[in-house]
Nucleic acid binder design. Structure first.
Length: 843
DNA sequence: GAGCACTGC
């Protein structure tokens, strides 16, 4: 039986930084508008000249708050009985029809208004409500930037845009960005309800819309638009001045995605620049974060205004000199040690704040949520909103443990025996393997429990788990049963698990880090940061006071690095740089980064872009680069695609199919039992190609696409993920459209060209892959191992590859990952002289 | 003979 493991208890009550919100809105019953006609208002006779949506209205789909947090895909396009207004207008409706429409419309509007009024008391009870005047005031006059810290549950994401809507400066649209698609869509739905408006493209009069990949739902009257960060960056390609917006609200900044870092840089340039492209229209920026990192954000924006001062000395003299911007505020204060490359397992948790803290003496309490010392600027305001979080007790291990799975097992049963129901347990682990191992152990131990003890229901939760299995965490537990949710990091931000009062935190996370020198991604288990530990803890206090069992000592906690390293310091920068170049940033080293990447990382990425032909020798973006930047692909994959459009290659459609596969999750299901594995091998045999994984993917997509009766059954029969295949078809469609727009793909197939032999076609495809992945090539050595041609590193073909165990003179691979050793994933066999030709052409 | 955390255009 498990024994007591936690002896020390730390009843922590000091305010900490707060966990980020993942959006699970509690109260959105959707009006039954699906069966109604969408003619809410008498239209002026100028219907939109083109549809503003690719999807006639997801709000017409049944929707529950639960699945809003977990549905990975936006609602798929479907005909839902919505009649476009234009069609109605030209249809010559009879008077009785018109009367019925009118009645429907009134009923619908009545419903919307009723709903809006019903929601008002809940809005007024939000912590942010009493700050409305302060927030409005903070953006008036010369104040263009507001830094807003709001804890979970403060209501900032839904209320701030509504507060700003009627401000005199707000003539245009308000954009509000989110890191995830589901959040953008469900927040838009909620705000539409609160405003008594229809959502998105469902009515031309709707005031609230959203825009995410594959699903854009806005109307001509949209005033508040929720979008993913990537979508706003995409819009900036067409409109660098963001002319349709009066305000941009950047939400969840503490998550520090690469896209948010780029957005903040662009917005700083815009707001502190001359704004001449905006024709005098003001632009207000609100930066919202759940953690009190105001100081770094303040310095970041303030530096922009000070830079402006030196260029245009007539502006700005209201900046408090106490906050002396120094050159080092361009350098990182997040304490990233750049020696990571050599020793991934080195003391990465030991963090020194030497890097700039000298200049920050007075305000160096970066990790406290206490209000920082005066941050004063005539252009920047700050606002702090309290949240709604129940207290959570923290319990540490007295001694460090080597085996966090075992320690978690003990803690789970300690909680289960000691604490009364209700109160589910959420356990944070590192990956599928540890989740499944602990699941087995928990079930095993549960068999030995006395009959009078409540039962235990162990539920795994990780992204690769099928949706139906993920949904189980939302089902109420049977009577006298405690749910134990065994989760990866997915539960930290993306999925809100209800009913949790106990959190067990392993203190570890599996994290991906790009290593410039080797040009590969490492996927390693590492200690979490203090802020991640606080976020995990917060998951226990959402519904009632809770407890957090940390499977490490308090000393270990204090030695963790204060913040999670921002993604931009961990990833391959080539995509980010191309994004900047395509939006007119010439000097990427001088770009305002909140945390500047290392010079080495920037140089490595610039070199890659140069090799791809995306940049010219002088560092300017080329035509090819501009095309690649418009595609939703990494620069390498984009280059492969552009190559395929070359008349000499002539295999664009095939390459699109392959690239679509490479940009979604694994399509071949991971099977557990030996029996299933053998079945799958037999069933997939017809799909496998001896040329390697890429042509195997092509064969799979083509077989799936030519299946017209039952694609789901086809996928099951071949042990292929149907969900992945649906995503692939979406991506494929989008890429084909974009290739047509970019004039890479002509709509009519050229019939005059001689058909390629299947061999020639395969060779062409492989040549295209080589063009993008020239750096990812290796040759067979006499001892049977593979060595990369650039860099001379040993690399093994990953066992998931169809080429695993095969010997071929050279390989090209689309992924280079280090887990236990260096692996090539996504591998094709090529001729050595082809590789030589490509490499020679680059130098 | 391994086993991939999580987003996004």
């Amino acid at each position: 039986m498990p024994e007591r493991v936690h002896t020390r208890f730390n009843g922590e009550s000091r305010p900490e930084r707060f966990p980020p919100k993942s959006v699970t809105l509690q109260d959105h019953s959707t009006p039954p508008q699906g069966k109604k006609r969408k003619r809410a208002e008498k239209l002026p006779n100028s219907p939109p000249s083109k549809p503003h949506s690719t999807n006639p209205g997801p709000n017409t789909l049944p929707h529950s708050p639960k699945n809003s947090a977990i549905v990975g895909n936006a609602p798929r396009n479907q005909a839902n009985g919505v009649i476009p207004d234009r069609q109605l207008n030209s249809n010559g409706r009879t008077p009785s029809n018109a009367r019925r429409d009118n009645k429907d419309m009134k009923a619908q509007y009545g419903h919307l208004i009723k709903r809006r009024d019903a929601l008002l008391p809940a809005r007024k009870a939000l912590p942010i409500w009493s700050h409305a005047a302060e927030i409005k005031e903070g953006l008036r006059g010369p104040k263009d930037v507001m830094l807003l810290v709001g804890e979970t549950g403060s209501g900032k994401s839904t209320q701030v845009p509504q507060f700003l809507l009627d401000e005199p400066w707000c003539k245009g649209c308000i954009a509000i960005t989110q890191p995830r698609r589901v959040a953008a869509i469900s927040l838009a739905r909620r705000v539409a309800e609160e405003m008594g408006s229809l959502l998105g493209s469902s009515s031309p009069s709707s005031k609230v819309g959203y825009s995410v990949r594959f699903d854009n739902s806005t109307s001509p009257n949209t005033r508040i638009k929720f979008l993913t960060e990537g979508m706003l960056l995409q819009e900036m390609l067409r409109d660098p001045w963001l002319k349709q917006y009066s305000a941009v609200i950047v939400d969840e900044v503490h998550e520090r995605s690469v896209n948010v870092d780029l957005l903040l840089g662009f917005l700083r340039n815009l707001v502190t620049g001359d704004k001449k492209g905006r024709k005098g229209m003001p632009l207000k920026v609100v930066v919202m974060s759940a953690t009190a990192d105001t100081e770094s954000l303040f310095k970041f924006f303030n530096a922009g205004y000070q830079g402006r001062k030196s260029e245009h000395s007539q502006i700005s003299n209201g900046i408090d000199r106490k906050l002396d911007r120094t050159e080092d505020s361009e350098s990182s204060w997040s304490g990233i040690s750049s020696s990571e490359d050599e020793k991934p397992k080195a003391k990465s948790s030991k963090i020194t704040q030497t890097n700039g803290s000298l200049k920050l003496k007075a305000n160096s309490n970066v990790n406290n949520s206490a209000e920082p010392a005066a941050l004063v600027s005539k252009f920047i305001s700050t606002c702090y909103i309290e949240g709604r979080q129940y207290p959570v007790k923290i319990l540490y291990l007295p001694e460090p443990t080597q085996d966090f799975v075992e320690a978690a097992l003990k803690s789970i049963f300690q909680i289960h025996y000691k604490e009364p129901l209700p109160g589910d347990v959420l356990v944070f682990l590192t990956g599928q393997d540890t989740v499944e191992a602990l699941e087995r152990l928990v079930n095993e131990y549960a068999l030995g429990m006395d009959a009078d003890v409540p039962k235990i229901l162990a539920l795994p939760l990780f992204a690769a788990l099928p949706q139906s299995a993920q949904q189980k965490i939302f089902h109420p537990a049977p009577p006298k049963t405690r749910k134990i949710i065994l989760a990866t990091n997915i539960a930290e931000t993306s999925v809100t698990v209800p009913g949790v009062r106990y959190v067990v935190d392993s203190g570890k996370v599996k994290i991906k880090q790009f290593r410039n020198r080797l040009g590969l991604d490492s996927l390693l288990v590492k200690p979490i940061s203090q802020s991640a530990a606080i976020q995990r803890k917060g998951r226990a206090g959402r519904e009632a006071p809770g407890q957090c069992y940390r499977l490490y000592t308090e000393k270990d906690y204090l030695e963790l690095q204060p913040r999670t390293t921002p993604e931009i310091l961990r990833c391959d920068l080539s995509h980010a740089i191309l994004t900047m170049k395509a939006r007119g940033v010439e000097d990427v080293v001088g770009f305002p980064f909140l945390d500047p990447p290392t010079r080495e990382g920037l140089e490595k990425a610039l070199l890659l872009l140069l090799q791809l032909g995306a940049l010219s020798d002088t560092g300017e973006i080329s035509d090819i680069g501009l095309k690649i930047a418009k595609l939703p692909l990494t620069p390498t994959l984009g280059r492969v695609l552009v190559e395929a459009a070359d008349p000499e290659r002539d295999c664009l459609l095939e390459i699109i199919d392959i690239i679509s596969c490479l940009s979604v999750e694994n399509i071949f299901l991971n099977l557990i039992t030996e029996e299933k594995k053998e079945d799958a091998e037999v069933a997939r045999q017809e799909l496998y190609r001896r040329e390697g994984d890429h042509l195997t993917l092509l064969a799979t997509v083509q077989a799936y696409a030519s299946e017209h009766t039952d694609r789901k059954a086809w996928a099951e029969k071949h042990y292929v993920s149907h969900r992945a295949m649906q995503n692939i078809m979406d991506v494929r469609k989008q890429l084909r459209q974009q290739c047509t727009q970019l004039k890479l793909l002509s709509q009519s197939v050229d019939m005059s060209a001689a058909p390629q032999s299947s061999q020639a076609r395969s060779n062409n495809i492989l040549h295209c892959l080589l063009r993008g992945f020239a750096a990812n090539t290796a040759r067979l050595m006499p001892d049977g191992s593979y060595r990369t041609l650039l860099g001379n590193q040993t690399v093994a073909i990953h066992p998931s590859s169809v080429l695993f165990g095969r010997k071929t003179e050279a390989i090209v691979f689309s992924e280079f990952v280090f887990t236990n050793k260096s692996y090539a994933r996504g591998v094709s066999a090529v001729q050595l002289d082809w590789v030589g030709e490509v490499l020679a052409s680059l130098s």
